[in-house]
Structure formats: C-alpha cells, structure tokens
C-alpha cells in the first residue's frame, strides 16, 4: 500500500462529495436516519462527530508506532471512547443547554463506523498532519450529510427550518418518522450517484473509501 498521502486540498474536500461518508461510503447510517429529524439536531451531532473524528484520527496517527496490530481495534475503540467522554463531560459542564439536546447522541458516537474506519484505513498508515486533515474532511462530510438530510426532512416533513415554522402545516409528516429517514437517505444517495454519473465516473464499488 503506497504511503504517499494525497494532497491537503484533496483530503479536505473529498469527504464532502466524492467520498461523503454517509452518501457514498454508506457509513454511520444510524445517526443519519435517527438524528436528522431537524436541522438543529443534525448540526449539533455533526459538530460533535467532527471534533471526535479529528481528535481520534490525530491520536491514532501519533501513536501508530506503539499500537500493537493485534489489538488495534480495541485500542482504537478506547481512543474514540476517551474523546467522546471528554466531549460529553465538557458539554455537560460548560454548555448545558446544548447538552440537553444532544447529550444522548454524543454517547453513541463511540459506535459510529466512520470514525474507526478512518483510523484503520488512513490514520494508522499516514503521518499526523495528513491524518488530521483527513479527519477534518470526513468530519465536514458527515456534517454536510446531516445538514442535507436534516433540512430535507424538517422542511418537507415539518414545514419548519431550524425550529422556525415556514408554513403552518406539516407537508409530509412521513418524513419526520423513521421510515421517512430511510427514504431520505436513499434518495440523497441516489442523487449523489446521479451527479457522479453525470460527471463521468462509475458508481462506487465498496464502502470504506480509499486509504
């Protein structure tokens, strides 16, 4: 496996579209379905995931020489759990109103496939700075995914945006329900694939993305 990492601009931007973790790599679909009932929820969780992703990737890359390959998965999990708990404690102590809304989901970040997958596929094999940028790129991509899905579901399902009602009825309440979450993710995924086809690329083959 080649160790020369891609350029910084590629690292920062590929997570947004071509390797968007939710809509192209099909990772972390659970929060994408569960938390995107409103833009605000999606935004908060996206920001939390962003920080955990950057910090975890950075940590994994710094310590990559000392992590025994046989136990790398438990160690990665502990690293993620460490940062998630740090985030959880900081939010509870200093941002109580945000914590009320997102607290439940912050604890679940440990199980997100995207973070451990980036650590395994990229941070474990690349220097610290590129790994950090990769984390930033993927974190931004996840945040974008949450915002897109959240906007779609809240606008069309609840008639509001960020809590402010735009119309005074609920256009298609189905979208706010879990079933609507699945449909939303599927539709946006199809949209991303279609844009990709228009740009002349073939459809992605496997999840996980490039190293």
């Amino acid at each position: 496996m080649s160790v020369t990492p891609p350029t910084v601009s590629v690292l920062l931007t590929r997570g947004l579209f071509s390797e968007n973790p939710v809509f192209r790599l099909a990772l972390s679909l659970c929060p994408a379905v569960a938390v995107t009932t409103a833009v605000e929820n999606g935004l908060m969780l996206g920001i939390a995931v962003f920080f955990v992703q950057v910090l975890s990737s950075m940590t994994a890359s710094i310590f990559k020489k000392w992590i025994n390959p046989k136990i790398r998965i438990p160690v990665y999990t502990i690293i993620i759990a460490l940062w998630v708990t740090v985030m959880d404690m900081l939010l509870a102590a200093y941002f109580p109103s945000t914590y009320e809304k997102v607290g439940l989901y912050v604890k679940l970040i440990v199980a997100f496939a995207i973070i451990i997958s980036r650590m395994e596929l990229f941070a474990a094999k690349n220097p610290v700075l590129p790994s950090t940028f990769d984390g930033v790129g993927m974190g931004l991509g996840f945040l974008l995914a949450m915002l897109l899905a959240g906007a779609f579901r809240e606008l069309l399902g609840n008639g509001s945006f960020f809590g402010y009602p735009l119309v005074h009825f609920q256009p298609l309440f189905l979208l706010v329900l879990p079933a609507g979450g699945f449909f939303t993710i599927g539709l946006i995924m199809a949209l991303f694939n279609w844009v990709d086809l228009l740009r002349g690329n073939t459809l992605p083959k496997a999840s996980g993305g490039h190293g």
Binding site: L172, F173, L174, A179, G180
Partner: peptide, 8 residues
C-alpha cells in the same frame, strides 16, 4: 401506508 403515516 405512506399516506397513513403522512396524513394520520
């Protein structure tokens, strides 16, 4: 089913 969920 969709209508049932959307316009209960």
């Amino acid at each position: 089913a969709m209508m049932m969920a959307s316009f209960p």
